[in-house]
Design a binder for these strands. Structure first.
Lengths: 240, 240
DNA sequence: CCGCTCCCTAAGCGGCTGCTCAGCAACCGA
DNA sequence: TCGGTTGCTGAGCAGCCGCTTAGGGAGCGG
């Protein structure tokens, strides 16, 4: 089993260019739950996909290895050719998901210079991902404590990284006078919590698109930090 | 097994004033996780308490009936004298917890007349409960989908009730011009989500008390709805 | 003393769990 | 043609799961 993540490869596979099959992130003609295109043996990817669905629906502990295997169209034993344990499946899902989270926040943070735009971009992209990939995100965000001890601590480090990025934006915003925030740490935690929880309640059939929710949440968060006007980032209108 | 809930009693217990035992919110000498004082046979209450702890730690499916029973100091079979199934334990926890949630929101909603004060009171009390009783709240909010079909639909109705209360406050606030909210339904959902998620990340040993988090969140939510000044409700200071 | 009720336990049942292992078909370079 | 590797299956193991059942002991009205 091989996963390319761009950083922190766990198994000793060469950083091959196999992922080129889905081009530059394959944003065109996107399937409902791909984003696992980099997982190399086809069967391993199908198993991962099946595990994501099953974990999201029933939770890690309520999901049986037989269920995962049969969703992937394979026998129960096939799972253990590609993954040592059921927990390793969760670990791979969690690791890739968290790395993507950090990358989304990092890229948004680098996409602008003034804190308000950085914050809006970060919240918008982060929330959009949680809505668009809510099945994956639900597993990533809510099945954490089923991880083995060592895997858990590794994932928690990634989560702290996300927290730091957001806190950094708030600190910059307060420093330059764009934000009015008394408790920076607490507010950063609240903002992150607000975004993450989208994965819990979002349903695909709902009345709002991920894009719309991203926009709504970016506006709400700008208000939370006391940024002068909600929609000040796109264009340059000073009000409304 | 008998539980008094103050409203919507399922089994035939009188709507007694037993809740007076914890006085006005029982802030004095409060035990870590009581609030189940109304459960009548002592053994049944101990089992409920044990189940709350176990479900919160490991999740419903990962918790065994043997674990619950042994936490309560009883044999595995004793559980089935007081509850028909493991799921019924979850159902009782979920039902009582959701009824308490609705009651907290209702009382806060009735505690003032102007929408800003009502919203601040609701968020403050709701968040405080989720932090103070985070063990219970975690089960109540995040183990929902382990419920049986009929129990699930009953609980979902209670959740919709909470949603409506919050949405009502926002509607009133917009109507009288205290709030500036474009998407009332989406904002109400976001506010509720923000409050609920406190149960996920809150730890007892943290640097903030439930009271402090309640205050912080009330302020954040007032900002989210565009209420004029964050701290305008207690006292009358127009700023900060 | 009886007989009855209320709680509780020891033992265990059928079934499902994560996981293993021997074996086999398909492909591969030589 | 052939040995070796890869990817998979059928069968199954040990152990744990939710839940049941038979029975026991303490209390209690009579």
């Amino acid at each position: 089993m091989t996963v390319e993540t761009g950083s922190g490869a766990v198994d000793g596979s060469p950083d091959g260019t196999d992922g080129a099959t889905d081009g530059a992130r394959g944003a065109d003609a996107r399937e409902p739950e791909d984003a696992w295109g980099e997982v190399t043996p086809d069967a391993a990817r199908r198993l991962l996909l099946a595990a994501v669905e099953a974990f999201a629906e029933r939770g890690f502990h309520a999901t049986t290895t037989r269920d995962i295997a049969s969703r992937a169209g394979m026998s129960p034993a096939a799972l253990y050719i590609h993954y040592r344990t059921k927990e390793e499946l969760l670990y791979q899902i969690s690791r890739v998901g968290h790395e993507r989270s950090v990358r989304i926040l990092t890229e948004a943070n680098d996409s602008a210079t003034n804190p308000a735009d950085r914050l809006a971009a970060a919240v918008h992209a982060f929330v959009r991902w949680h809505a668009e990939r809510h099945t994956t995100a639900r597993v990533v965000q809510y099945e954490l404590n089923a991880l083995a001890e060592e895997h858990y601590t590794e994932i928690v480090a990634l989560r702290r990284r996300s927290e730091e990025i957001l806190r950094g934006i708030l600190e910059d915003g307060v420093a330059v006078g764009e934000f009015t925030v008394a408790d920076i740490r607490g507010t950063a935690l609240a903002v992150l919590s607000l975004c993450i929880d989208v994965a819990r309640w979002f349903r695909s059939g709902g009345s709002r698109t991920p894009e719309e929710i991203g926009t709504l949440y970016a506006d709400l968060v700008l208000r939370m930090v006391g940024a002068p006007a909600g929609g000040s980032r796109e264009g340059d209108r000073p009000e409304r």
